[in-house]
Amino acid sequence: MTSPNIVWTRIDERLLHGQIRITWGKHSEANLILVANDDAADGPNAAFMQAGMKASAGGEYAVRFFSIQKTIDVIAKASAKQKIFILCNNPTDVARLVEGGVPILHCNVGNMHYHEGKRKLTKTVSVDDKDIEAFERIVKCDVTCTIQNTPDQKPIDILSVITETA
């Protein structure tokens, strides 16, 4: 069996929205956006969440909503024609994916908003201890994690920023 054609993986608290379609989707040349998120796939508001995200995709991409476990279970069955953009809203889910065998090589960190108990790393990325532990797990699996809000910005290694702001 061939490896799935994962062209981009991004953490964005907002999941699928216009910036993803307009900037990252085109940048990655994806044709399928896989929202890997338990709530969006099976949560009580899944239908509502999915409708909004499908509208944001503008019909330019096939869109799938899988739980983290389903993504782990079925990603190897993806067609070679599928250029997959995996979208998660937190680093713990990405850690679960890579630890579950999903062959992610790079994780782009976009928007993780400030909430009580988090510390600001950059204008668009704030983390707490759970997030830091998840990023460490991801990197331990040989996945590069960089903060980059838009493709024209210079990527910044997440662990170096965490260390600098500690």
Score class of each variant (00 low, 15 high):
Phe85Thr: 03
Pro91His: 01
Ile156Pro: 02
Ile33His: 07
Val109Gly: 00
Ile86Phe: 08
Tyr114Val: 05
Ala41Asn: 02
Leu34Arg: 08
Asp128Cys: 02
Gln82Cys: 02
Thr2Trp: 04
Lys140Met: 07
Thr9Asn: 12
Ser126Asp: 04
Pro4Ser: 08
Lys83Tyr: 15
Ala166Gln: 10
Asp39Gly: 00
Gly58Asp: 05
Lys123Cys: 05
His106Trp: 14
Ile22Thr: 12
Asp39Trp: 06
Arg64Asp: 14
Asp42Val: 00
Ile86His: 10
Gln50Cys: 01
Leu15Lys: 07
Met1Phe: 13
Asp142Cys: 04
Cys107Pro: 07
Ala51Glu: 08
Ile138Pro: 09
Trp8Gln: 15
Gln19Ala: 03
Ile22Pro: 05
Phe85Leu: 12
Arg96Phe: 02
Asn45Ser: 13
Tyr114Ser: 02
Gly100Ile: 05
Ala78Asn: 14
Gln50Arg: 11
Glu116Pro: 08
Ile104Pro: 09
Leu32His: 11
Arg14Met: 12
Glu99Trp: 00
Leu97His: 02
Val63Asp: 12
His106Asn: 14
Asp39Phe: 02
Lys70Asp: 15
Gly110His: 06
Gln148Lys: 07
Thr163Gln: 13
Thr71Cys: 15
Ile158Gly: 10
Tyr114Pro: 00
Asp152Arg: 06
Gln148Ala: 07
Met112Pro: 01
Glu13Leu: 01
Thr122His: 07
Leu87Asp: 13
Asn149Ser: 05
Val143Gln: 11
Asn45His: 12
Ile162Ala: 01
Glu116Gly: 03
Gly101Lys: 00
Val127Lys: 05
Ala57Lys: 04
Gln50Ile: 05
Leu16Thr: 08
Gln148Cys: 09
Cys145Tyr: 11
Ala30Met: 12
Arg137Pro: 12
Gly59Cys: 12
Pro4Asp: 06
Glu60Ser: 11
Leu15Thr: 04
